[in-house]
Design a binder for these strands. Structure first.
Lengths: 246, 246
DNA sequence: AAATTTGAGTTATCGTCGTTAACGTTCTCA
DNA sequence: TGAGAACGTTAACGACGATAACTCAAATTT
């Protein structure tokens, strides 16, 4: 243990920090990001607003930290979704994680908007911590998908698209990113398929959460399932073993 | 003409309304949606804030109207992008419109966030005006894509995906939407391809505009071009005539 | 042409917000 | 036991949306 005795004061402090963030979370859920205010938090906690400055540098910093926690939370949810599936079935794992991602985002719309919508100034951007893969929750969140995808590739299950589809410029621009990975031998076509899948997943979830699909669909789930199936058919050439999560 | 003499007062009024919206637009561009405030607008116009209430019911209503104008603006940009291309080449038209959509959104990031990000309370949602296809700018914006897509289908150029890929539930849920169209005979697989394409386009543009791709790519354009090419290859079976717009 | 109504703008005010400064109070530790 | 840090308070500043009451000029009506 690095901290033997958390020293009473430190215990109280961490408890207060937790209560502040938890109150902010509740305000976020109930009224959107703009409902998070220092005065509202303090009011609900039976305090006065300036007291919060003992714990956070500013409202912006508070929201940034809340956002980091949310990334960790969704990462944990994704990790939990893949655990019951054997590690040698990465396609099924990816499938379950995609469904869980959609489920989490739909059940946490305000959080999703904060994390994946218009970037809030102060919230750590992903590319700022591209070097160390664990420091930021965002990278960890991406890695969960990436690890399974690489496993799938190592199994030889991924059919990279024909070369003529891959633009030379794409290969050129992706090169520095490949160097970041611990698998630099990953073909450019496979990386393209990964990014393409992440974009399709994000696109569908974002449109659904933001209500931009309600004009066409009463329920997005069938389209989601169909599109995910089409994607896995595209990259593996076979239908994946599906079990619609939840 | 319905209005013979716009009656001096009305001319002044519309001019003031225009100036208010144009000032709001500038504030939006310079400082994001949160920078739009009645006081700031009034300050820049040499007025006092309450005067604006003579022209708009509230800040929310002002932003909603600004948003409608933006939908019309992007619709016009898309329309201008397809005009130089013959109407009997809908695939090329769609391709050009997709590129133009990305270009417009990248050059108008703050506007994009307002229109396609987290929905702002007060901004008219698309599904509220699903009946009349012209009333809302959003629908007109969607229609520009839809029209070309239907033309492409009428030419027999779209290969619908195999039936087993299309979920029965998808067909079920899309039925009411098909009835809305003037082409109810449109196969469910074709509608799926359209929505899938729109989602892929939105996903890529949204991630790029929001900066959620900068961790992987210094320049998103090659991936955009590649993915669009892959999409058109998927739905038509052949590579479209491309000319990377701008 | 005079009287009246309408429209557009003002000032004053209320309650909200983030943030800072100055001031107590309480707990911890040497 | 005393010094000092940590935690909390009140007071205040400037910015925000919104409303009410008021002034003034323009348009309309008589």
């Amino acid at each position: 243990m690095t901290t033997v005795t958390p020293s009473r004061r430190e215990r109280l402090r961490t408890a207060t920090v937790a209560e502040i963030k938890q109150t902010a979370r509740r305000l976020l859920v109930e009224g959107g990001a703009s409902a998070i205010s220092l005065r509202a938090i303090a009011r609900e906690m039976g305090m006065t607003a300036p007291a919060i400055y003992r714990y956070f540098e500013s409202l912006e910093a508070l929201i940034a930290e809340l956002c980091s926690d949310l990334y960790a939370e969704v990462s944990a949810a994704l990790d939990a979704a893949r655990q019951p599936i054997p590690a040698d079935q990465p396609a099924t794992r990816l499938r379950a994680m995609a469904s869980e991602f959609r489920r989490w985002c739909i059940n946490h719309r305000a959080e999703f908007a904060l994390m994946f919508g218009e970037p809030v100034p102060g919230v750590p951007e992903v590319d700022e911590v591209c070097g160390q893969h664990v420091a930021s929750g965002v990278v960890a969140f991406c890695e969960v998908f990436m690890v399974e995808f690489v496993t799938l590739w190592r199994q030889g299950k991924i059919k990279p698209p024909p070369d003529e589809v891959i633009s030379d410029q794409l290969a050129e621009k992706l090169a520095p990113y490949l160097a970041e990975l611990d698998t630099p031998e990953l073909p450019i076509g496979v990386v393209y398929l990964f990014l393409s899948g992440w974009i399709r997943l994000y696109g569908m979830v974002a449109m659904e959460v933001f209500g931009h699909l309600s004009w066409a669909l009463a329920d997005v789930e069938p389209l989601f399932e169909t599109d995910m199936a089409a994607y896995f058919h595209l990259i593996t050439g076979e239908a994946p073993a599906i079990g619609p999560a939840v």
